[in-house]
Design a protein around this nucleic acid. Structure first.
Lengths: 151, 151
DNA sequence: CGGTATCCTATTCGATACTG
DNA sequence: CAGTATCGAATAGGATACCG
């Protein structure tokens, strides 16, 4: 990595907060964080990617095993998700040319390294889940509760 | 919050890693993490939410100021994003009944608390951005490079 | 068993125009 | 200035059927 401990900015010149892990690194040009956020979202912000890398964190799994574990994912989406993860180097694919075919998927070191920050987010969600639900309920309540809400 | 320092599981009995921040808390029933991940993704996994809370992290901003800063967001999506963030208690909205109208948006403490885990993710993305791009290029290269790829 | 292709639906989001 | 409403394009994602 290039620099460390840089100030993170979203737009033109908007300091967010200093953080000892964020460097401008390679994304040199443009407003850094905005692009980076979009990047990470378009990469693992879809419906299944995080779930899949999570499942592969500890042990490799075959396609069908994954399919059983994910619960709700369609055959099509599992293939597609795995393809993208493989493409990004987060998951490795090993096919054994037997009959019937056997294909094992495993998280790469890079894929496993994703777990730490993701667990941070998951932790946040778990910790504040209640607060959010409460806020949402409150908001939805006086949406049609009191006077014709003047917005 | 309920428990702390629990083992995080994705599916039936799939330990991921122990993490000192993750408790089963309120989401008691079902396979915990799966639901939580879906939760957090459906909340801030969209195109603009993280960007907006990021911009409001340090100082309140008016609607138009935000609109200028986000760059690329449509009028419609900014309103909608702010509505959802307000609904979830991540952002507060204060309208001053003047003419012309003035409305200020600010991150709530809850909204600001989101910054930490998100910066973890952003840091990861920034740090590994190069590796991912490289992997992707390599993958795309021999997609139509060598023999008719037997998948 | 693992993967691809086709079809169809729902959602997301941008553009635009109009209101207080 | 802030917000709403309507429309349409693009995308994501599920169901299904078929191939190796």
């Amino acid at each position: 990595m290039g620099a460390t401990d840089a100030t993170l900015r979203i737009a033109d010149d908007v300091p967010i907060v200093d953080h000892p892990h964020v460097g401008s690194s390679t994304c040199s040009t443009d407003h850094p964080a905005s692009a980076v956020i979009r990047d990470v979202l378009s990469r693992v912000g879809d419906k299944w990617s995080l779930l899949v890398v999570g499942l592969l964190h500890d042990r490799p799994l075959r396609f069908t095993a994954l399919h059983r574990k994910v619960d709700g994912i369609s055959h099509r989406m599992l293939t597609q998700t795995l393809r993208n993860l493989e493409r990004d180097g987060l998951v490795s694919r090993t096919s054994y040319p037997e009959i019937p075919p056997r294909v094992e998927y495993a998280a790469t070191p890079l894929g496993r390294s994703l777990a730490e920050p993701v667990l941070g987010l998951v932790g946040w969600a778990a910790a504040n889940h209640e607060q959010i639900t409460a806020a949402r309920d409150a908001f939805d309540d006086d949406a049609d509760g009191p006077a014709p809400q003047p917005r």
